[in-house]
C-alpha cells in the first residue's frame, strides 16, 4: 500500500502555488502553442483528419452526375438509418417499370446525426461521408433537405477529402469489375465451346 502525501507548509501556500500555475499559463500562452490551442475560427481553420465526417453524400463516377451515380436505389441505407433521415424514390421508365436508380434521394440533414451507418451498410460504395461542416441555413425545410442534385459529388471530390479510403474503394471496385469481366469472358468462352460442340 502506497501513500500519497501532500505536504502543506504554511496556510495560504496552496493558493500561492495555484497562482504560480496561473502565472505560468499567462506567460506560456504567449509562446507555447500547446497552451494556446484556440483557433481563431473564420480566419484560421484546423485541417480535418481524413476520417472526419459530417453528413453523407452520393458518389458518382465520370462527369455526369445523372448517369454516373453509383446508387442503385436499393433502400438499404433508408432502412438502416437510425434517424430515418433518408428518403428514396426509385426512378421509373415511361412504361412505369421501376429502374435501378433513384428518382429522388433526399437526406434531411436536420435529422441526420452523421453516424455513417448508411455508408457502412451500402453494398455499392455509393454513399460516403462528407466532411464539409458549414450547413447553416435560414430555413428549416428546403435548405436542410439535401436533394439528389446537392448530394451527388464526383469521385474526384471523394478522392480529395479522403484519399486513403477512396483509393481503397477504387481498387476494390476495379478488382470486382475485372473479376466480373473475367467471369463474363469465361462464360462467353464456355458458351462458344458449347456452341461449337453443339455445332
Amino acid at each position: 500500500m502506497k501513500l500519497l502525501k501532500h505536504i502543506r507548509f504554511l496556510p495560504g501556500s496552496g493558493i500561492l502555488k495555484g497562482m504560480l500555475v496561473t502565472a505560468r499559463n499567462l506567460i506560456g500562452s504567449y509562446y507555447d502553442p500547446r497552451r494556446l490551442r484556440t483557433v481563431r475560427y473564420p480566419e484560421e481553420r484546423l485541417p480535418l483528419p481524413e476520417n472526419s465526417r459530417s453528413v453523407p453524400f452520393l458518389v458518382y463516377d465520370g462527369d455526369d452526375a445523372e448517369t454516373g451515380l453509383r446508387c442503385v436505389a436499393c433502400h438499404i441505407c433508408e432502412t438502416e438509418c437510425p434517424a430515418r433521415a433518408i428518403h428514396i424514390v426509385n426512378a421509373c421508365d415511361k412504361r412505369g417499370k421501376v429502374l435501378k436508380r433513384p428518382h429522388r434521394f433526399e437526406i434531411d440533414i436536420s435529422a441526420c446525426m452523421g453516424c455513417q451507418i448508411c455508408s457502412e451498410v451500402c453494398p455499392f460504395d455509393a454513399i460516403m461521408m462528407d466532411n464539409a461542416y458549414n450547413h447553416a441555413a435560414f430555413e428549416r425545410f428546403d435548405s436542410l433537405t439535401l436533394t439528389r442534385e446537392r448530394l451527388a459529388k464526383p469521385n474526384a471530390y471523394f478522392h480529395r477529402i479522403k484519399p486513403t479510403e477512396a483509393a481503397e474503394i477504387d481498387s476494390r471496385l476495379a478488382a470486382d469489375r475485372s473479376r466480373m469481366e473475367e467471369r463474363r469472358r469465361k462464360k462467353e468462352a464456355a458458351n462458344a465451346t458449347h456452341n461449337e460442340s453443339a455445332r
Partner: peptide
C-alpha cells in the same frame, strides 16, 4: 426541391 442553394465543394 432542387431549387434551393447548392453548397460549393470546399
Amino acid at each position: 426541391i432542387g431549387s434551393s442553394r447548392v453548397y460549393p465543394a470546399r
